[in-house]
Structures are given as C-alpha cells and as structure tokens.
C-alpha cells in the first residue's frame, strides 16, 4: 500500500464533509461538517509530510488545528447567540441581519 491512499481517504472525507455543509440545516451539524473537512485537510498534510520526508506538513497541520479550535470557540458562541435571539439553531431561520 502506498501512503497516497491516505490522501484518497482524505479526499473522500472532504467530499462527505462538503456535502454535509450544503445539505444539513442545523447550524451545529453544519459546523461539525466543517470540522470534518478541516480534519481531512490535516490528514492530507500529514500524509504528504511522510511522502516528502519533512516535517513542514505536520507544522501546517498543527496550525490548522489551532485555528480550527479558535474558530470553533467563536462559531459556537455565535450559534448560542443566534439560538438565544431566535430560539432555533437552523440556518434557515437566520435569514435576516436583525431580529
């Protein structure tokens, strides 16, 4: 087995995550699908780091993780705020800029 298989798997996971972002209506599930896409990108970076034999890919994956953690914190805060004002976590209900 070649390590490129990991990249194939990452492509598959990324596609599934992208479809989830487009199809699901619950904001939290949409967010989880974004996380899935980020993880797939990380797997690609780690696999290429091994294929090329240097650690730059792993460092990039590390930064992706940190940024993803920050993004989760802010995104979930926004979802909680939306839920407070509209009593729903559906992305369809957040169709106006104001209440």
């Amino acid at each position: 087995m070649s390590p490129v298989n990991y990249v194939y798997l990452a492509a598959l996971l990324f596609t599934i995550g992208a479809v989830g972002v487009l199809v699901r209506r619950n904001a939290i599930v949409v967010f989880m699908c974004v996380e899935l896409m980020l993880n797939a990108a990380n797997l690609t970076l780690v696999a290429f780091s091994r294929i090329h034999g240097n650690l730059d890919g792993q460092i990039m994956a590390f930064f992706v993780m940190v940024v993803a953690a920050a993004e989760v914190v802010v995104g979930l805060a926004i979802i909680v705020m939306l839920y407070r004002s509209r009593h729903s976590a559906s992305v369809d209900d957040a169709s106006l800029m104001k209440l």
């Binding site: 989880m32 990380n42 979930l76």
Partner: peptide, 22 residues
C-alpha cells in the same frame, strides 16, 4: 504516519475539547 505529536494532540484537542464543546 509518524506524526506522533499530532496524533496525541488530535485526541486531546479534537475529541477531548472540541467535540465536548460541541
């Protein structure tokens, strides 16, 4: 894939912190 640090960080940060936050 030889990314030992990232493997542990993935478990601690993602499954331990991010998913629990979710």
């Amino acid at each position: 894939n030889g990314a030992y640090f990232l493997g542990i960080v993935q478990i601690v940060v993602y499954t331990g912190a991010v998913m629990m936050l979710f």
